[in-house]
Design a protein around this nucleic acid. Structure first.
Lengths: 202, 202
DNA sequence: ATAATTATACCAACTGGTCGGTATATAAAC
DNA sequence: GTTTATATACCGACCAGTTGGTATAATTAT
């Protein structure tokens, strides 16, 4: 039936897939449109039929990436019974997003790098981080209400701390894997959580 | 006297300066040798007289960068009376290195990005981080001996935690400056230090 | 003189993007 | 049901400009 339409969408997907891989492996500038075409086994004509510019492809990949990140974030909320568990899970999920399926993180670096030149990209990434931080903030507030977290905790400060730590851990881990102990990410967040947890009375 | 010799060194310095700026502003790939020459007000011939390749320039800039980082690190040790103060100062210094004189951090990103492709660069950066972490480790151990830090603290774990946090804070700060509270970096490290400090008996 | 330094002209390879044209699938007209 | 029309998908040669790097000549300092 609509063979053409479907095939068109498939090539577009293929281009985005290959683009994401090459951009993260080789970097945006060092990846030529021809490289993408060759690896995707399509012609240059096909490429520019689906994407007006190379830059546009990059932006679509970024949007896609952020969209998936959002979805993952929402998943955690549903799956977690209480706020403490949710926060611990977050790191795993971030981990999974960035590190699993190799090279995911390097394209994040590529996004970061481009963001310092392109204010629109910067805005998008910044928003994403803020969204993420606000989510942690709400988890902490929720934790206070649940009686799991001390009331005097500065939610704003701690949420920023957790986000910063998460970013740092992931960056360190994915770049210099090497010596790190198992579950370091988890333990790191737990360390902070331990400090803001309310002591359980027996 | 040896005016020419000196002038030769000066052009080399100039190239490295301009190179560092342009690489961090525009990125390695997007910066052409010609761009560097124009901004440094020299000819292409002069460039390739001092550097065999563009890549080589990048590596020398990296080495220089790491060298300066090392020196800064050693400075703190001398200036600090005890280990706790030293640790707090570290973040400021890191901050200063990365953020002050805008764009310093973006070239660090550029280093990171290239490291994911070049194993030699990766090694260098990795070593630097390990050096840095080992330094924090020694500070913690020193703190234990000084009686400032609890003996049961896992120095390895905490040193990794601090490094990760520092990286994350700096990255977040320099990219999405925005809303962050004053002295967040300092407060962040202080938060961890507070947890491992030995209570002072009065 | 001679060796180091800088400038100019140049090259082959490659860049993002365009363009004329083709193939094929869907839809409309008969 | 068959023809006609139209839009989508795709190809690959081609464009003007840029790239890192070279060859060579001119300048300069010792």
């Amino acid at each position: 039936m609509n063979g053409k339409r479907i095939k068109g969408e498939e090539t577009k997907k293929k281009i985005m897939e290959v683009g994401e891989n090459l951009f993260s492996e080789t970097g945006y500038d060092a990846t030529s449109v021809q490289d993408i075409c060759s690896k995707a086994e399509i012609s240059k004509g096909a490429f520019f039929h689906h994407f007006p510019t190379k830059e546009f492809l990059f932006l679509e990949i970024l949007n896609d990436y952020l969209f998936k990140l959002d979805n993952k974030m929402n998943e955690i909320e549903k799956k977690s019974k209480n706020s403490l568990i949710a926060m611990e899970k977050m790191v795993d999920i971030l981990d999974e997003i960035f590190v699993t399926s190799k090279g995911k993180f390097t394209i994040f670096l590529e996004f970061l790098r481009k963001s310092s030149k392109d204010s629109e990209i910067m805005k998008k990434l910044s928003n994403q981080f803020q969204k993420y931080q606000k989510y942690v903030f709400s988890l902490i507030e929720k934790g206070k209400k649940e009686g799991n977290i001390k009331e005097e905790v500065d939610s704003e400060f701690i949420s920023q701390l957790i986000i910063s730590l998460a970013i740092g851990m992931i960056l360190k881990k994915s770049l210099f894997l090497s010596d790190e102990k198992e579950n370091f990410s988890k333990k790191g967040i737990e360390f902070i959580l331990e400090s803001i947890k309310k002591e359980k009375k027996i």
